[in-house]
C-alpha cells in the first residue's frame, strides 16, 4: 500500500464516519458536524492528490482546499443560524420532531 493509498483510506474512513453521524444522530447540530467532517475528508483527499500528483507546482489542490475551507465556514454559519431560528420556533432541535412541512 503506497502512502497515497494510505491517505485516501484515511479520508474515506473520515468521510464514512461523518456520513454515519450525519444520518443517524437525532440532533440537528450533530448533522452539521457530520457534514463538516465530510467536507474535511474531501479536503484531505485534495491535498493528498496535490502532494503526490504529477504537478504540485501548479498549487491547484491547495487553491481548491482554501476555497473549500471558506465555503464550509460560510455554510456552517448559515446552517447554525437556521438551527437557532428553528429552535426559537419549535423549541426543540430533535430532527424527528421537526417534520411539519407547513410552518
Amino acid at each position: 500500500m503506497t502512502p497515497l493509498q494510505g491517505c485516501l483510506l484515511v479520508s474515506a474512513l473520515l468521510f464514512a464516519i461523518g456520513l454515519a453521524g450525519a444520518v443517524t444522530r437525532r440532533n440537528a447540530i450533530l448533522a452539521l458536524v457530520g457534514i463538516e467532517l465530510m467536507l474535511n475528508a474531501a479536503n484531505l483527499n485534495f491535498i493528498a492528490f496535490w502532494r503526490y500528483g504529477p504537478n504540485p507546482e501548479a498549487l491547484s489542490g491547495m487553491m481548491v482546499v482554501i476555497f473549500s475551507i471558506a465555503i464550509a465556514a460560510a455554510e456552517a454559519a448559515v446552517g447554525l443560524a437556521l438551527i437557532i431560528a428553528i429552535y426559537r420556533h419549535y423549541r426543540t432541535v430533535n430532527l424527528d420532531e421537526i417534520k411539519n412541512l407547513k410552518g
Binding site: 468521510f15 464514512a16 464516519i17 456520513l19 454515519a20 444520518v23 443517524t24 437525532r26 430532527l95 424527528d96
Partner: peptide, 18 residues
C-alpha cells in the same frame, strides 16, 4: 435516545460508501 429510529440503515449505508 440519541439515535434516529433508522440508525442501522445509516450505518450500513456508510459502511458501503467506505
Amino acid at each position: 435516545a440519541i439515535l434516529a429510529p433508522d440508525w442501522f440503515a445509516g450505518i450500513v449505508v456508510s459502511a458501503v460508501v467506505f
